[in-house]
Nucleic acid binder design. Structure first.
Lengths: 170, 170
DNA sequence: CAAAGATTGTCAGTATGCTGTCAATCTAGA
DNA sequence: TCTAGATTGACAGCATACTGACAATCTTTG
């Protein structure tokens, strides 16, 4: 057998491939987010970063990247843009000259309060076409899959554990 | 009531949001794809484009973007790179001077044959952590959701219908 | 304490993705 | 036919993402 006959190459195989579906769904999710939030000058990534900084005031960029599973390189420019919009500020850490601490500003906290309803509408719209039971089933499976595949991505999620090495006053 | 008390802002709400999970899963999917296919100089997007051009020889860029649901602007550079690698070639359409027809080259067809097993391994790996029944359930729900949300994205999938206006000799 | 090693923020380079625009070209209607 | 409108490929500009590298800085070790 010099060459095994390959399966026929069809677009249907592409349309049914997990990778294609994940990409497509991501495009759709971003599109819905931007539509619901067009009154606010925030992208999904910037929103997640703001939430994380709000939840962990004084976090540094490297730990932030672990908490939201974003690439450290990418995060640099995201932070820059958030700072340019005056939603966050960077302060040098007194005990480590390499580190810059991130804090939400008043306008940052304000925009967060205002945008949350729009974000929730967006999240709901993404799943709206499914029956409620199916929405729940899909989310359950996705949470599992993302968790079990955590190490497969370049920047695994390190959630709260990532903060254990931070100097906490508690 | 001057201001309604907002729900507490937690990272768990972010981690459970559909949009966040889709983004995360997309990152993971790309990472796995690139790892399995590192022997071949092809990205997931370039792979999908190659398959579509193989399936629809002589397609033009605009219709290609509809068939794989990629942005027309983005596709331009993707095509450029595929052409630079000598995997496809562009020929001017005789009856319409605006259009450039896309064809797979011999090296393009060859790389497609070679990469397919790696791509299938990648697709399988993405779902591997789930039980077989759960994989099937997830894919079924995702196919539904992507289809029902088709119009929500900037570039809805137009699959084969997009080709109806193409001059077909058959 | 000095050298080796690790960490942090940053940058260059590449590759999607999106919005908006434009000239060239084709099409449809007056 | 002549022109208003649509289509096509291309481009500029912005925003993720990833790889790999780097200087400054901190930590660990001998």
């Amino acid at each position: 057998m010099p060459s095994k006959p390959l399966p026929p190459i069809t677009m249907d195989a592409v349309y049914a491939a997990p990778g294609y579906l994940f990409r497509r769904m991501q495009q759709i999710a971003v599109s819905i987010f931007m539509e619901e939030c067009k009154a606010f000058d925030l992208t999904p990534v910037q929103y997640a970063a703001l939430i994380a900084i709000h939840t962990h005031p004084g976090i540094d960029a490297t730990r932030l990247s672990a908490v939201i599973a974003f690439d450290r390189s990418t995060l640099g420019s995201v932070i820059e843009r958030l700072e340019a919009k005056d939603y966050i500020e960077r302060k040098p850490a007194p005990e480590d000259k390499r580190i810059k601490l991130l804090y939400l500003t008043k306008p940052g906290a304000a925009i967060l309060r205002e945008i949350i309803p729009a974000v929730e509408r967006a999240q709901a719209r993404m799943l709206e076409p499914l029956k409620p039971a199916d929405r729940k089933a899909l989310m359950t499976l996705l949470v599992q899959l993302v968790d079990l595949n955590n190490e497969a991505s370049r920047v695994p999620l390190r959630a709260e554990d990532a903060l254990e090495h931070l100097g906490k006053s508690g």
